[in-house]
Design a binder for these strands. Structure first.
Lengths: 138, 138
DNA sequence: GTAATGTCTCTAGTGACTAGAGGTTCAAGA
DNA sequence: TCTTGAACCTCTAGTCACTAGAGACATTAC
């Protein structure tokens, strides 16, 4: 059994975040020492590692809750879990598309001024003021 | 002069958001009708269009504040504005990189189960539980 | 004149934490 | 055994960029 600080070190999840996950129901309520401090075991560590990995992949707390629920009912696990992962993948792809449009636009804008020094009509500001200067929608 | 609802329609920024921008200092305090309702003119519309366009490009409220300040001091405008746009561009590129790593990972995970039906050991859940199964860091 | 719609301010909620106050417990060394 | 200092506890409030709702007042169309 180890403390919340030790768990934090091993999983690289900050202490207040661990407490927050417990409050949100992602982690079961921890056992306590005689002095009311949280104590964890290997199972707690694995659960938190799962959560951290899923968060790193951009899953919401809600999605992770669903995944955990599925873990606890292995009979109906796989399809639903795949659905969640697939919809997460779709979201990521949508974000990428959007960001690439922005990248092009920002690249165009931020290059507009370069090499000319400080000019009277700033191309950055003009571009932001007038959407019509954009190559495409965003 | 037109109302906040009219401004909202023309800029596609929601009414409470306009009030929020005013509170944050992005918009100057609006003139008021005799009955204390906000009234806007062309200048207000242009300012809000600028803000909306910048927000669409992912600039933070703070960054937009700086850009607006620069607009009001044209003597030192262009370089600083380009800096802001460039750093925004870098952020966008970082996000894209990160998301593409996630995309690969999620793609791998969500395909692990497909076609096999519901299996006993769900690959999605196993992948999330064990970072060691990942191809690379994230 | 009345009814419907728009607008006002104020407070509180969102997601996923983070920071701080003020108090208690633990572990290690003397 | 005692002491010290780090780690821990709970609780409240703050972050960002809005969004939602309550209850009251203004405007507009008929």
């Amino acid at each position: 059994m180890f403390s919340i600080g030790e768990l934090s070190k091993r999983t690289k999840v900050k202490v207040p975040t661990i407490r927050y996950y417990e409050e949100m129901g992602l982690l079961p309520e921890a056992e306590r020492s005689s002095g009311n401090q949280r104590r964890y075991d290997q199972a707690g560590l694995e659960r938190l590692s799962f959560i951290r990995h899923a968060r790193d992949l951009g899953f919401s707390i809600e999605a992770i809750s669903s995944l955990i629920e599925l873990q606890e009912h292995p009979d109906r696990s796989c399809e639903a879990a795949t659905d969640i992962a697939t919809s997460q993948l779709e979201e990521v792809r949508t974000k990428i598309k959007r960001l690439r449009t922005l990248e092009k636009e920002l690249n165009r804008i931020s290059k507009g001024c370069n090499g000319k020094g400080v000019s009277e009509d700033c191309y950055v500001l003009a571009s932001l003021a007038d959407h019509g200067l954009c190559d495409r929608d965003h």
